[in-house]
Structures are given as C-alpha cells and as structure tokens.
C-alpha cells in the first residue's frame, strides 16, 4: 500500500484507524439521538396531556372502560369545557370566559402590534439608510426581544393599568391594558420578522417602481409590502401565537382568576385561556388536573395549528411561490 511508509518508526503519525472508524458512526448516532429526543419531547408533551384527558383522574381504577367510551367521554369533556364558565365544582367548570377573552385579546393585539411593528420595520429598512440612528434602534429592538415577559407585565401594570399614577390615564385591570401589554411584548418579534422579509425582496423591484415615477410610499404600499407579505404573515402569526400563550404578564396586568361575566368591550374586566388553565393547574385537587389538561389540549390545538400555518406559508413562499410573484430578470434580454 502506498500509505505504508508514513507509519514508519521515524514518524509520529498514528492513523488510529479502528478508533476513528468507531467514533465516526457513534458520533453520528449521538447527534441523531439528540435530535430525535427533542422530537420525542414534543410527542411526550402532547401524549401526556392527551392521556390525561382520555383517562381522567378520580375514576375507579381496575374498572375496564372500552376505548370507544373513553373517546366519547373525552369529546364530551372538551365540549363541556368550551361551553361552560368557571365554576366552583371541577365537574362543571369550563373555559368559556377565557376563550372569549383570548379572542378579544387576539383581535386587539393584531390591531395594535401589526401596523406598528410593520411600520417600524418599513421605516428601518426603507427610510433610515445605514445610519448610527438605525443601528441604535436595531440594537434596542434586539434587546427588547430578550426582555423576560414578566418584566413587560411590570411595565403594563404601572403604565397601562395605573397610568403612571395619573388618574385620567389609568385604564384599570381591563382588557385593553392586557392587550397593550401583549402588543409591546410581541412588537420586537414582528419588527424583526418583517425586516427579514423586506430584505429578501430584490432591489430591482424597488428601483423599477421608483423609475416609473412612483413615490417612495407608493412603491412600498403597492409593490414592496405585497411582495414581502408571506414573510410578514409568518412573523405575525408566530408573534401573535406567542401572545396568546402568554400567562405571566397578564397575571400582572389584572387578568382575573375566575370571571363569570364575558367581556363585551375593551374596558371590561378580562381573563385569558392560559390564565384560567394556570389557576386550575395550581389546584391540588385531582379533578382540576383533568380540567387543566382539557384546557391545555384546546390551547395546544389553537397554537400548534397557528404555528403550523406559519411554517406552511413560509415553506410555500420559499419554494418559488414568492419569486414567481416577483419577475426575475432573465439573462440575455438586456444585452
């Protein structure tokens, strides 16, 4: 073999063939194992909650229940949770007020954070140039994205609920205060996602619109935002789904533990689905554990389908759907 002379007594090269041949696949399997463990965790989360709903606590052990009966019972449980309000009895309690509150919150958070977030991103990408001011704002947004959600709760408590101590500014523990707090919380997510989407739009699109006499805002409104819309939509859905799953800041901004009155407007008392789940999960009584599991199942269905939708939109856009909407210059025609 040609490699023989390399391993003579006068060189210190040791091929270690056997060890290397062992380590290589071993490492591959370790890494693969780590990835599948994380996938397994997702399955465990969903599986554990699902099992809890199918096999409620407090049932007599040893009594055989047919799987079909279990599934029917689980569906009955979920539909009860959706229609009933919070009650003192775990067997009667439900999430109706929380679900409607969360829907209100969703509406206001989208209405507030999307225009502001997209607007700030457009300003940074299209109006700012490469200035020191831009990098300052940029760094500020990156740091805001890392602020713990409970700190936003403290901000919302003082700024919105108590109006910085001014009577006429204080909103009190109302739905709008919660929605404003959540909007501030997800603003950085939306700004960063929108900026990335805008950066991915080719420069030629902007130049073409401007060359035809469009003003800057006309170019942005009619060409840039439509071309970047899949990316913006993805970022918005991810951000909003985070807001819907948040509990901690709402606890600070006066979300009620148990509310019997459905909120009818932005100035009513409110609660949220995750907040109600929290108070059920906290109860030591076993029966509440099943109620919490059912609530989590509803929440996970909502959030995971939102996340899934976001991923779907992005994958479709990256698979050439987006570039088909943006005419690319073909080689040769300009020569």
């Amino acid at each position: 073999m040609a490699t023989r002379p390399l391993t003579g007594p006068d060189t210190n090269f040791r091929p270690n063939h056997r060890r290397r041949a062992l380590m290589d696949p071993l490492f591959r399997w370790i890494c693969f194992g780590a990835t599948s463990v994380s996938v397994l965790f997702l399955a465990t989360v969903i599986g554990a909650v699902l099992l809890r709903v199918l096999i409620p606590a407090g049932g007599e052990p040893g009594q055989a229940v047919s799987p079909a009966a279990r599934v029917t019972a689980a569906f009955a449980l979920i539909s009860r949770l959706v229609t009933n309000k919070t009650g003192l009895d775990a067997a009667e309690s439900g999430y109706r007020v929380g679900l409607i509150s969360s829907a209100w919150l969703l509406f206001f958070v989208v209405a507030i954070s999307v225009p502001v977030g997209v607007g700030a991103a457009v300003y940074l990408e299209e109006y700012c140039g490469k200035s020191r001011w831009k990098s300052f704002v940029q760094m500020n947004i990156a740091n805001l994205a890392g602020v713990p959600s409970i700190v936003y709760g403290l901000l919302g408590l003082i700024l919105f609920q108590r109006g910085l101590g001014f009577e006429w500014l204080a909103l009190g523990p109302c739905l709008l205060a919660g929605a404003l707090t959540l909007s501030l919380l997800i603003l950085p997510v939306i700004v960063i996602a929108t900026q990335e989407a805008l950066r991915a739009v080719p420069k030629s699109l902007r130049l073409a619109a401007l060359a035809l006499g469009a003003t800057r805002w006309q170019m942005i409104r009619d060409h840039l935002l439509p071309a970047a819309s899949p990316g913006i939509l993805t970022g918005t859905i991810l951000g909003v789904s985070r807001a819907i799953g948040e509990t901690a800041p709402l606890l600070m901004v006066g979300a009620a533990a148990s509310l019997l009155k459905v909120p009818r407007g932005p100035f009513d008392r409110y609660t949220a689905l995750p907040v109600e789940i929290y108070y059920n999960a906290k109860e030591p009584a076993e029966a509440y554990s099943t109620v919490a599991a059912g609530g989590i199942l509803i929440l996970l269905c909502l959030l995971l389908s939102m996340n899934f939708l976001a991923i779907l939109i992005r994958q479709r856009a990256s698979r050439g759907h987006g570039s088909a909407a943006i005419p690319t210059r073909r080689g040769g025609s300009m020569r």
Binding site: V45, V49, S241, G245, I277, L303
Partner: peptide, 15 residues
Amino acid sequence: LELLAGVPTIVYGYL
C-alpha cells in the same frame, strides 16, 4: 423543533 418552541410555558409547568 419550531413547533416545540411554540408550546406555551404554562404547558411545561403542567407537564
């Protein structure tokens, strides 16, 4: 993995 990141923290507490 992204879906795993989308699970709200209250769910982990319950888990």
